[in-house]
């Protein structure tokens, strides 16, 4: 009897954790979406009004679109750069360890540090980037103050921060390509690019999809960068979905509405990831 109980005892911490911190919150979240609640007053039943509000909330729509814009810039950019750098590192070179370590450094540093730092680089008047631009005869760019530039700027920064991780992942993938393939291709006189597209790319395809999925999930939780750098401005061009949920919940204490936003947004993420997974499986 005791023997039979042991496995359950071992997994019991997880079961408790799951019930308290996953199952209950998810259930409660669904319940909250049908209520209005500012935490201090009693809950009020709201029917479907939170959902109605969500579908009429232009700012939330904008926040979701902003997040998607971020992803659309961030992901391709990240994959191309990461692949490029990984390809370079995969050559016969000295100091590979150093280069790899350098590329990886921003990955381990807190996002807060990165945002404080880049806020300085992106400054309009005294920022390093604009000083360089003016020196070489270009016009200054409102990296964080121009509504058209702000989100791309944040996406570039995020790429800078995360790309090192994906370089490593690709490097692992590249090393699984059998060298004979390249040798054979060289005998047939294939160029570098041909080798890359014909041999490398098909083999590391799974890695690419994994990177897409990983950075999609990461990108959907975009929060600290706009929170520190722009506060969501200019003209709400950098309000991310999570920032908006945070604002509704913890600024205005619209707990019911914030839960509705969170719930809806989570479904959105799940479906995007599902679609991506479908693609991966098809490809296999």
């Amino acid at each position: 009897m005791r023997k039979k109980l042991i496995p359950y005892l071992l997994v019991s911490p997880y079961i408790i954790y799951f019930l308290v911190f996953v199952a209950f919150p998810v259930g409660f979240s669904v319940y909250l979406t049908f209520n209005n609640w500012n935490i201090i007053s009693p809950m009020e039943f709201a029917g479907l009004s939170n959902y109605k509000r969500l579908f009429n909330d232009a700012l939330f729509r904008k926040a979701v679109v902003n997040t998607l814009i971020f992803l659309v810039i961030h992901i391709p950019f990240q994959i191309v750069i990461a692949l490029f750098l990984a390809e370079l590192l995969n050559q016969k070179i000295k100091f590979r360890g150093f280069f790899r370590a350098a590329f990886f450094l921003p990955v381990i540093v807190s996002g807060v540090v990165v945002t404080i730092l880049w806020q300085q680089l992106y400054g309009f008047d005294t920022g390093l980037l604009n000083r360089v631009l003016v020196k070489i005869g270009f016009a200054k760019i409102g990296w964080l103050t121009d509504p058209n530039w702000a989100m791309p700027s944040i996406a570039v920064m995020a790429t800078w921060k995360n790309v090192g991780l994906y370089v490593i992942l690709f490097l692992v993938g590249l090393q699984t390509v059998p060298p004979q393939y390249y040798e054979a291709a060289e005998l047939e006189g294939a160029t570098h690019l041909q080798k890359f597209f014909r041999i490398t790319l098909p083999i590391i395809n799974p890695t690419i999809f994994m990177v897409i999925v990983l950075s999609t999930i990461g990108g959907f939780s975009l929060f600290i960068e706009p929170y520190v750098m722009t506060g969501g401005g200019p003209l709400n061009s950098t309000v991310s979905a999570v920032l908006y949920i945070y604002k509704q919940g913890f600024f205005y204490h619209h707990m019911g509405y914030a839960a509705t936003l969170g719930f809806f947004f989570a479904l959105l993420i799940l479906s995007v990831v599902m679609i991506q997974k479908k693609f991966v499986e098809k490809d296999k």
Partner: peptide, 23 residues
Amino acid sequence: IFYIIIFTMTLPFQITLIPQYIL
């Protein structure tokens, strides 16, 4: 239990953020 664990891995934190705070 294994599938539950896999499932929670795909669950975005945005959904549990508010209720966890209230908890």
